[in-house]
């Protein structure tokens, strides 16, 4: 569900500062997001082997194929320290996959070898991040990018969002960074018992303050910012192939920009009639306002930063808002 949580918004100077700070990334457009995140930990079926299983199977495979293998040969073959290999063999013994005291696979060990990777499905708890929205959207946001917060009452998440994401085509998953090896969601039964504890889904409420930049290449990358200082991190915490990948990044309608412009003008006590008469045009990261000369003169007298190309405004009412630099042009 979408919550009307207070949103922290940066000011014009902050936006302007970001623009110059991110200049090395060749930005084309800018957004600011105060996103509420569901970081949901669920049990899913994943394909393939775990790292440990990979090791066991590899060692078993070698032992089965080269029946006269010695520990030294295994060490040499795997390039592992002898201590590590001893540890692995000991573990294999404990799990009954090799005969104790010898390097011969047991029948269970041989059976393990016969299974194919692709067919193997193993349950694993995974964590998925979703932006809080009427239909939550998966985001491959790094865990470090968001901070836990106390959610308001009414904080809800529908597990169907995960199932929807799992059911999406591979192309979508690749575009959005959704893991391809996730098979299906293993929901808890309606009457869970202690036996079902691995299946219990947990949703952790987090919030992320992000600066999203569309680069010349079309790729959108997100940087973390901190509302205390509005400083931004250099690391990309989330990236999208293009703006189309996220609905909220799609171009704002003119009405939205006009509302933002009008709000900006109202805060500066500009005459509403002249403000309404302006023609707006969105060009890359700029919002070109074709304004009457009198309005421009008024701003000039007020030494407005808008005439120096340093005034920025945010448009929209959602948690992801497009930013634009005001450019006043005589109409």
């Amino acid at each position: 569900m979408r919550l009307e949580e207070p949103i922290s918004l940066p000011g014009s100077r902050i936006l302007n500062g970001w623009w110059y700070e991110l200049a090395s990334r060749r930005p084309r457009r800018l957004w600011y997001a105060h996103a509420l995140i569901h970081r949901v930990e669920v049990l899913v079926e994943v394909a393939g082997l775990s790292a440990q299983e990979q090791v066991y199977r590899s060692v078993l495979g070698i032992l089965a194929a080269y029946r006269s293998s010695t520990v030294n040969e295994l060490v040499e073959r795997f390039g592992l320290p002898a201590g590590v290999m001893t540890l692995v063999l000991h573990q294999l013994e404990l799990e009954g996959l090799i005969i104790a005291g010898s390097l011969q696979p047991t029948s269970d060990g041989l059976q393990m070898l016969t299974r194919s990777d692709g067919a193997l499905r193993r349950p694993q708890r995974r964590t998925f991040a979703f932006i809080d929205a009427p239909s939550p959207q998966f985001v491959s946001l790094t865990p470090a990018a968001s901070l836990p917060f106390s959610p308001p009452s009414g904080w809800r998440f529908d597990l169907a969002a995960i199932e929807t994401a799992i059911a999406r085509p591979e192309e979508w998953k690749t575009r959005h960074g959704f893991p391809l090896d996730v098979g299906r969601l293993l929901r808890p039964p309606s009457e869970p018992t202690t036996m079902d504890s691995p299946r219990i889904p947990v949703d952790r409420a987090e919030q992320a303050f992000l600066v999203l930049v569309e680069q010349v290449s079309g790729q959108v990358s997100a940087h973390v910012t901190k509302p205390e200082s509005w400083s931004i991190g250099s690391e990309v915490v989330w990236s999208l192939p293009d703006v189309g990948a996220l609905e909220e990044l799609a171009s704002c309608e003119e009405a939205v920009w006009r509302a933002a412009w009008q709000l900006w003008a109202r805060l500066r006590s500009l005459p509403a009639a002249e403000v309404d008469a302006c023609r707006l045009e969105r060009v890359a990261h700029r919002l070109c306002v074709h304004a009457p000369a009198s309005l421009i003169d008024r701003l000039r007298q007020g030494k407005s930063e808008s005439l120096e190309g340093k005034a920025w405004l945010l448009a929209g009412s959602g948690r992801i808002r497009a930013a634009a630099c005001l450019e006043l042009l005589p109409s």
């Binding site: 930990e41 869970p192 018992t193 202690t194 219990i200 889904p201 947990v202």
Partner: peptide, 30 residues
């Protein structure tokens, strides 16, 4: 997070959480 909590929780706490899962379908970290 869940496994960490579960391994340190008491039986009563676990049962309490299962009851929540029955109602909500999932748990919220808070």
């Amino acid at each position: 997070l869940w496994e960490s909590w579960y391994s340190h929780s008491s039986t009563a706490q676990r049962l309490q959480m299962f009851a929540l899962v029955r109602r909500q379908g999932l748990l919220y970290a808070h």
